[in-house]
Design a protein around this nucleic acid. Structure first.
Length: 328
RNA sequence: CCCGCCUUAGCUCAAUUGGCAGAGCGUUGGACUGUAGAUCCAAAUGUUGCUGGUUCAAGUCCGGCAGGCGGGACCA
């Protein structure tokens, strides 16, 4: 596969690549490094899965993948005590493996290099340098979509983006991948890394999924997600309860799930529909959107189809988790 | 270090001179829709930050502690 073909593939399902020319240059390398950082989370859900799927694709295109289990970031973001967070990180690592990343994926616990080992001194020095270059307002603003809500915001919340920035040279990354909520941190990082003379990574942003309740963002804290290891009945139940207004494509979480978890892997979606409602359909992405928009496809029929696909899509992950992860 | 104010349901906040701890939102369950939502009906939810005291009776008054917010002082 040549570089232009790779570029095109990488762009699929992303909202932006900053910068595309830089990415092109990175693709000259035999094994460019791509990374995503995740705050350990009680549940790994569809939102996380979007980025993991993209990482899998990058892996298949020759990228070396590093996953940062960002324990300190979670700690700074008020997610609990470090020992708890590290248990959660172990669980998340299993989840990521369950989604099919290959054996040579590298999982790195943030604290391992951020505060331990010889490199931590250089790391800390970078964080301090960044601290002198970054205004409070800019740092705060970068955290708009990332910070946990806090009536009494802590200094931790402005250290967070600085550490995230310092992570990039520490991990030697060519590409930083994240959801759109990472954008402001990434843009700040690109500016700052340039200033301190470190390599500036390409940033790739994927869309955020709406919550099943129609909220702007699917997130663990809001409970409006489907987890990658949810049981079949749970998936059915959650889909059934989801917000899905008739005729409305925009911001419809069920339509979004079809876009991100069905169509990248199947040309068409089979919708099984009772005869009295018109019988079965096999729809391409465009057909589905058009029909739904025209109210020719009832939400319930769509939901049934999506639930079925999701159950199949995550079957391997679910089985992997059942076998490899014993909750204590 | 000193002074003042704040802390009540998951959230935002009520509660009269001390007199059965409440509302809205959210949650859950039903009704209505061939989904969800909206709407209607119903229900659940509390160590009133912790602690000691006064009182027949304390969310309410007094003392101590913790956390938070604001100010002052120190530096000078």
């Amino acid at each position: 596969m040549n570089i232009d073909e790779k570029l095109e593939k990488i762009q699929e399902g992303t909202l932006e690549i900053v910068d595309i020319e830089e990415l092109k240059a990175k693709l000259e390398k035999e094994h460019p490094v791509a990374y995503t950082g995740y705050e350990p989370s009680g549940k790994v859900h569809l939102g996380h899965a979007i980025t993991i799927m993209k990482l899998k694709q990058l892996q298949s295109l020759g990228f070396k993948i590093k996953i940062l289990l960002a324990d300190y970031h979670a700690f700074l973001n008020g997610k609990g005590q470090l020992d708890e967070i590290e248990k959660t990180a172990e669980y998340n690592k299993k989840c990521f493996q369950a989604l099919g990343l290959s054996e040579d994926t590298e999982y790195i616990l943030g604290s391992e290099f951020q505060i331990k080992g010889r490199y931590s001194l250089e790391y800390t020095n970078n964080v301090y340098k960044l601290a002198t270059l970054t205004t409070l307002k800019r740092a705060r603003r970068s955290m708009d979509q990332v910070s946990r809500h806090d009536d009494n915001p802590k200094v931790a919340s402005v250290i967070y983006p600085l550490m995230q920035t310092a992570d990039m040279p520490a991990l030697g990354v060519d590409v930083a991948l994240g959801g759109m909520e990472q954008r402001k941190i990434h843009m700040l990082a690109r500016e700052s890394l340039e200033k301190i003379g470190e390599e500036v990574p390409v940033c790739i942003h994927t869309p955020l999924l709406h919550g099943l309740d129609g909220d702007d963002k699917m997130s663990s804290s809001k409970g409006n997600f489907i987890a990658i290891d949810d049981e079949e009945d749970v998936i059915k139940d959650k889909i059934k309860k989801s917000y899905c207004p008739k005729g409305e494509v925009e911001g419809n979480p069920i339509i979004e799930i079809a876009e991100h978890f069905v169509y990248p892997y199947h040309e068409t979606l089979l919708i099984e529909r009772p005869e009295k409602f018109g019988g079965n359909l096999e729809l391409s992405k465009d057909e589905l959107c058009t029909m739904f928009d025209n109210e020719e496809l009832h939400p319930m029929d769509l939901k049934n189809a999506i639930a079925k696909y999701l159950i199949e899509f995550f079957r391997p992950a679910r089985e992997f988790m059942a076998e490899n992860y014993k909750d204590e």
